[in-house]
């Protein structure tokens, strides 16, 4: 398409800018389906900003190729807008319709000025393609932001669910919460072993109160963690085994006979402290007798 066919668009944009903007904003504000997340004033501001950038980019009649540097400012503005709206919780179609709704006032103005011009169809087509592409830019940015958020949350959950706590001198504990899959076992193992090295722990307590089910796979992961801990020169106690889980382990015939297990974290801690030498069962028994 020749550039000169498209230059009138630029002149319309500058000539009737006030009309177009006014139309556009009122159109958007009148939209019943608009979410309440974006306020009227911010909508007006972003509409004005978009129009200004659009006008500047289309000044040279270059409206066919979005990859030219003139359009990068428009694309950047739209991505930013999309990102901020994604954070506010707008849907992607709402953000896209911000750009798409720009068609109507633009085409109306075009129709008014070039109603009988044979090049009207060509201009409309070029503009339509352009605005569609801009709408795609917003959708893409929206999607990307959402994916980033999801990825960050996944990482947060993973980190949050595998803390290694120093319980006492030489004793660390890992309260496991949620299903134990291989990826999590790997992280638990790395964190736990690193902590053992860092504080020179002699005993590690693995508390599985928060693990909903234990199947052969999970048991395998637990056994792996225990043997890695042993290789480091520390001992491992598994605590928080609920009655159902004890039954399941027996039922499945999982052999964990050489692993020390305790019913509760309290028992495990007592055992650990006895092994490290902080607690003596004999002394406790003597106290009980006196009482």
């Amino acid at each position: 398409m020749a550039k000169d066919t498209l230059t009138p668009i630029a002149s319309i944009l500058s000539k009737s800018s006030a009309d177009i903007i006014e139309n556009w904003v009122s159109l958007q504000l009148a939209n019943k389906n608009r979410s309440q997340a974006v306020s009227d004033s911010s909508l007006t501001t972003s509409s004005n900003e978009f129009f200004k950038l659009f006008q500047a980019a289309a000044k040279d009649g270059n409206i066919e190729n979005l990859n030219t540097p003139e359009w990068s400012a428009v694309k950047l503005m739209l991505s930013d807008l999309s990102v901020s709206r994604a954070r506010l919780g707008s849907s992607p179609s709402e953000t896209a319709s911000f750009v798409l709704s720009f068609k109507q006032p633009l085409f109306e103005q075009l129709n008014k000025d070039f109603g009988n011009d044979p090049s009207l169809a060509k201009m409309s087509w070029a503009l339509s393609v352009l605005i569609d592409d801009l709408a795609l830019v917003t959708t893409e940015a929206f999607q990307k932001t959402r994916e980033d958020i999801i990825r960050r949350q996944q990482k947060d959950i993973l980190e949050m669910s595998t803390p290694v706590i120093k319980m006492w001198e030489g004793i660390v504990a890992v309260p496991l919460i949620g299903t134990l899959d291989s990826a999590r076992t790997q992280i638990v193992m790395e964190n736990l072993l690193q902590k053992i090295v860092d504080i020179g722990a002699k005993i590690a307590i693995l508390d599985i109160t928060g693990v909903p089910t234990v199947d052969t796979q999970t048991a395998q992961h637990l056994i792996k963690t225990v043997s890695a801990t042993r290789l480091m020169g520390a001992e491992c106690i598994i605590s928080g085994i609920r009655p159902q889980i004890a039954q399941t382990i027996v039922h499945l015939g999982i052999e964990i006979h050489d692993i020390v297990t305790r019913a509760t974290m309290e028992d495990a801690l007592r055992e650990a402290m006895a092994r490290v030498g902080w607690y003596s069962y004999k002394e406790a028994d003597a106290k009980d007798e006196v009482r």
């Binding site: 790395e190 072993l193 690193q194 020179g200 722990a201 043997s227 290789l231 020169g233």
Partner: peptide, 30 residues
């Protein structure tokens, strides 16, 4: 066997090598 790095401990368990009859400690002192 003393002073095993965490990564080595993980590798050995993943490889399924049973270091039977070998004792381990965190450091030379232990």
């Amino acid at each position: 066997l003393v002073g095993m790095q965490p990564a080595i401990a993980i590798t050995i368990t993943e490889l399924g090598i049973a270091l039977q009859g070998i004792h381990t400690a965190l450091n030379a002192e232990g």
